[in-house]
Each structure stands twice: as structure tokens, then as C-alpha cells.
Amino acid sequence: MELRLDVLLAILAMTVVTYACRAGGYAVLRAVRPPPFVDAMLRHLPGALFAAYVAPPLVAGSWPAWIGALAVVGVQLGTRNLGVAICAGVAAVWGAQALAG
């Protein structure tokens, strides 16, 4: 049961930033409307972020990773259930790696 100072500081920094997004966003956006470009950019941030996150491992990855990605997207489209889609993706990579020997 250890709590290291550097880890605590990183967690606190994340907490402050996250609370600023939740509460500060309400306090600020209620008073001022951001310029349209900033507004639109905020809406595009999550999708672009996740694309930037998944691209390097998929491009560097072998074909089992691509099979897994297809499985995730297919199952998510079919079930709209995050948990089921994650499990399907991991299972597909597992199976493909086993096949690849």
C-alpha cells in the first residue's frame, strides 16, 4: 500500500485539469461563447485524439492487430456495447496470434 510522491503529484495534476474541464467549462462557456473555430475544434478533439492514439500501434502492428481492429469495429457497430467490443477485439487478436503460431 504505497503512495509515492511523484505518482501522487501526477494524479493530482490530472484531477485539477479534469475538474477544470468539468466545472470550469460550465463556468466559462455559460458566460462567453468561444469563437466558432475554437468551438468546432473542441468538438473534433476527441475523435482526432483517438485516431492519433490508435494509428501508430496499428501501423506498426502485425496482421493479428488488424483482425482485432476489424472485430472491435464490427462488434461495436452491431452491439453498441463498449465492453463486448473490447472483449471481441482481444479474443480476435488472441485467436489470430494462436493461428500464426
Partner: peptide, 21 residues
């Protein structure tokens, strides 16, 4: 622990919550 990188990650992912309130 990467304090700056963790805070930055939280900012970029969570800025989507700003318009919710």
C-alpha cells in the same frame, strides 16, 4: 511519474466535457 504528460493527456481527452455543463 510524468506529471506534465499526464496533465496534458487529461486536458486533451477531457476538454470534451467543457460544453456539457
Amino acid at each position: 511519474a510524468p506529471i506534465g504528460a499526464a496533465a496534458l493527456a487529461a486536458l486533451v481527452v477531457n476538454i470534451r466535457m467543457a460544453p456539457m455543463g
